[in-house]
Design a protein around this nucleic acid. Structure first.
Lengths: 231, 231
DNA sequence: TCCTGTGAATGTCTTCACAGCC
DNA sequence: GGCTGTGAAGACATTCACAGGA
């Protein structure tokens, strides 16, 4: 199950520049899940893993694992399985995770502050290196190790820290304006938590996480089955 | 663009009970986006809307809007468009959002506390009515309006508040155990923020949000285009 | 013998294009 | 005339089933 998510939108008017083989979107969305499983296996000193076992860990079926991995190349050994460390490296490389990508969070309200404190980003290669807010009252305050800067300082921060990705955690009403400023500051990869549709110019990448949307989808499927009282 | 997400996993071994027409998963994932757009239109006193305009607001194309809405029924008027209020009601009803669904958050660390304070859930029909943690040191503390209860109190809280949905915001290591306890307490709709694969019994619904995964997907597409320096 | 890698078959989603109705 | 609703075509994703190499 779990097909995963759509690819980032990209500003209109341009074809995907395929260099060599193209990896389907659905596969791309599963690669991080395989990566997580491989990190676990690596930690438990497992040398090789079969598609069956990896499928179990990732919550998909074995055929899908084999098909997905075959898009990256022939990294397995017939009759044996996949070498965990080697595959781990290949998946990391394919995802562009051989080095870190510094992140700025824009909007330090409840959600922004929580994301800033959430260790999961840094652990997985996306250190939060700057916080930015448009509210002068917040500028200068600290959240964890970081001081909050003003939105106007964005271009300088981007240059200084080599920021690659911007996370929008503002109210929906200002999210488009923030996205525009991120792009103007040279950030072309954006993750949007504001519950609104954004548009970005060609060449920029945009993904979204809508927290309430997930609950609404749960609600739909819950009512489909009627009042299912399992347990 | 933006196809959206996969449906919740459901415990294996059972067919979807279709009552009348079946709505594709991809469509279900877009309904909340249409809903949001319709709420906006309703707020701005707009009486009718064309598929073209709704598509623009939702960030999809018009053909998709028409196809999606046609699964709900023939609620539009040819030559005119859709009545905003009527469509708003129909989409709400289809999503099971004609009444609220109380939510419990399990795990009140950084992320859990932020989600508890995040107003977006309550606004959109999912009031957070209880907080639960396994750490005795946290029990009794308050976050916003709510006191933190012990995980052991879950069954009582579920009964008392009529809780329908559980949000897991614990470390990955304990997420499966928490899921089991949620199900045992009678909660069969779960949203998992822990970065791990969970399994639930038949009849239970599970969706996940993996925050770092989204960044990893961005990373993949960024490196695909090379160092695209747009702006 | 075992498990990968992959064409072929099947299933699902999107887009097209236009009939049908207001 | 204008816009919805929908079959049909096309694109995409998943699953099957087995050839092929260790």
């Amino acid at each position: 199950m779990v097909r995963g998510h759509a690819p980032p939108e990209r500003g209109s008017g341009q074809e995907r520049p395929r260099r060599g083989r193209r990896i389907p979107e659905a596969t791309v969305a599963r690669l991080p899940v395989y990566l997580r499983s491989l990190v676990e296996l690596s930690g438990s000193q497992t040398a090789t893993v079969s598609s069956e076992r990896l499928a179990e860990l990732a919550g998909v079926n074995a055929a899908k694992v084999r098909k997905d991995l075959s898009y990256l190349g022939s990294y397995g050994t017939r009759g044996v399985g996949y070498d965990v460390e080697y595959l781990l490296y290949q998946v990391s490389r394919e995802l562009g995770l051989t080095h870190d990508w510094p992140v700025v969070i824009v909007g330090v309200g409840n959600l922004g502050a929580a994301l800033a404190n959430y260790g999961g980003f840094g652990e997985r290669g996306f250190p939060v290196v700057a916080l930015v807010d448009a509210d002068p009252a917040k500028v200068g305050q600290r959240v964890g190790d970081l001081e909050i800067h003003h939105l106007d300082d964005l271009p300088g921060l981007v240059r200084e820290h080599g920021i690659a990705i911007g996370i929008i955690a503002t109210p929906a009403s200002v999210a488009q304006a923030v996205a525009d400023r991120l792009v103007a500051a040279g950030i072309t990869s954006i993750l949007n938590f504001a519950p609104t549709v954004l548009s970005v110019p060609a060449g920029a990448l945009l993904r979204k996480v809508d927290l309430a949307l997930e609950l609404q989808i749960l609600s739909f499927y819950r009512q489909q089955v009627g009042a299912a009282d399992s347990a």
